[in-house]
Design a protein around this nucleic acid. Structure first.
Lengths: 331, 331
DNA sequence: CTGAAAGCGCTAACAT
DNA sequence: ATGTTAGCGCTTTCAG
């Protein structure tokens, strides 16, 4: 902590000496001021201010067993999906006077496990986002510490799930309503939970609406995957495409443009996750992902669990909706 | 003095009892195993494993004065500039067995100050990125705790600066070499350090290369600002534009397209910070910002400062270079 | 309303 | 190579 400058950091004892009270009184002045005489509290606060006192968290944590920290672990901070979520989590934690430890597992399950073990010793609870670990490991940790999952559905463990099905179905329905008859779905990595969720939703809604749908799987979710898929979309004679996520959709926009097709006049494009904001041209119609809410809710659930450990195994799903922008138009 | 119940978390005392050694021996088995007999260490490790022992960080921190944490505070996690930097910082910290506390100041100087004060009590040092606080406040904190600044130049305080000047000058020179004669600079918020750095670099390089340059300031750095600037770029009869950052450049791309101008055939566009990757169409030529290095270096500097507090006031600048992609072409 | 006393779990001289 | 002895700074009964 300090040691960078000169003397010793003031402690509760120093304040006690200055004010002429006991250390317990000083302690109470911060923790339970209402148990003290108003003037005593005032004097102590003044002295603390003057001495530049800051409570030593480690001491407090040791004594109370509460570190005042939460930890959040994500596969890749730089993936646009996570920062808003992390941000919301940080803000929520902050609202409760908690600090947030951040871990980046680098998409590596083993690293994720190590990281969690390192973080858990100084956190009161964990938020684990899009975990890459096997269920068994997750359960192992959840058995010992308060843990909330985001976008991972393990029964018996508290989790908040962003359900893109609803939004994707809306998207398909919207396409149907605007006279599209043949659409394409440009998928992502087939192993991914989201991909399964989304392709199923497309299938379901298309069947319901009587739309023909062509599945164009690139197997990976990148800008280039989207761009390369453009030809297949055209070949399928689809007048609209739903993409696995915004990045793929963005690539698709580029690919279509490249081939001389205009969006949305020639083909409509819908993304998913809504991570690009309106920062695409034309502004991308997308399925909102509610990451921010997920982050906030996870933290609040976690806090609840910490207070009352019986309240685990809650399953919250956040539905999503279509956000209409400029890449969709009636056929 | 032991009496370990099965209910509580195991401590070194429990291990000591089981193995039949003293608590210090157990402590050493983890901290300085080389001071111990190999077999003793082995036995202790086995017992620890069996009991499910994990060192209590708070106790260790209290005793050693080292929390094992670093803190990083940014204005807005969701701003694409920061995540790669945070990520690199996290990875670097992790390499040294340190954890990272993350704070988001929400672009608010007061909040930033509060946050820092909350975090500093459980961190051995701070990395402060693009601080919005006045120098005085920064110095106040830096006087008490190891602190490294990123993209903020306060003399007397260790800092790592991403110097976009060099890259921007390269950009202008490149434009000159490819026969452009009139260029536009679409600026960002005039109060920003980066904006001043970049507009000056443009001015300097343009003068040197004999280019005419039109300054188009929107005062804010958003996609829409770039988009709205397109008309002015055309009006200025510039054949190329350098934008304050990638987001503005991206908007400019959209605006130009909207007005019927093709990039790069009709006008070349160069961004700055290179946060969009190649995920723009056409792929954006930009000035690399080396965020990742900045994050990593800041953490390493900080760690050095913590070990040896005399080593403060280092000033490292990272130069940048032009990354040519598809939005630039000879006039 | 305030003080005294007893740790929280670990590390670190100082002995052996 | 290991044991002894003190705390680190704070909270928290328990008394008064």
């Amino acid at each position: 902590m300090s040691a960078s400058k000169s003397k010793s950091v003031p402690t509760i004892g120093d304040i006690a000496d200055v004010v002429g009270v006991s250390r317990s009184t000083v302690s109470r002045a911060f923790g339970r001021p209402n148990l003290l005489g108003a003037d005593t509290v005032k004097k102590i606060q003044k002295a603390a201010e003057k001495l530049g006192y800051f409570p030593n968290q480690a001491a407090r944590a040791l004594s109370t067993g509460r570190s005042g920290n939460l930890a959040i672990v994500v596969p890749d901070i730089a993936n646009a999906f996570f920062p808003p979520l992390i941000r919301a989590a940080q803000l929520a934690a902050d609202n409760f006077g908690m600090s947030l430890l951040l871990g980046d597992s680098n998409e590596d399950p083993a690293r994720e496990f190590t990281l969690l073990n390192r973080l858990v010793v100084q956190a009161e609870g964990l938020v684990l986002v899009s975990s890459r670990m096997p269920n068994k490991k997750i359960k192992e940790i959840a058995g010992k510490h308060p843990l909330v999952l985001i976008n991972r559905d393990v029964s018996g463990i508290s989790r908040v799930l962003i359900d893109t099905s609803s939004g994707v179905e809306d998207a398909v329905a919207h396409l149907a309503q605007t006279k599209h008859r043949r659409i394409a779905y440009v998928g992502g990595p087939s192993v991914s939970w989201s991909e399964q969720q989304r392709s199923r939703a497309v299938r379901r809604a298309a069947a319901r609406e009587g739309l023909a749908v062509e599945y164009i799987g690139r197997g990976y979710a990148t800008f280039d995957a989207g761009r390369e898929a453009a030809g297949a979309v055209i070949a399928a004679r689809a007048s609209a495409a739903v993409a696995f996520d915004d990045v793929v959709a963005h690539g698709l926009l580029a690919g279509l443009n490249e081939l001389g097709y205009r969006v949305p006049q020639d083909v409509s494009v819908i993304g998913c996750d809504d991570v690009l904001g309106a920062e695409t041209y034309p502004a991308l119609t997308s399925v909102s992902a509610r990451h921010m809410e997920a982050g906030r809710i996870a933290v609040e659930m976690l806090l609840k669990m910490i207070e009352d450990p019986t309240s685990s195994d809650v399953r919250i799903t956040l539905d999503t909706k279509l956000v209409l922008r400029a890449t969709t138009a009636p056929r």
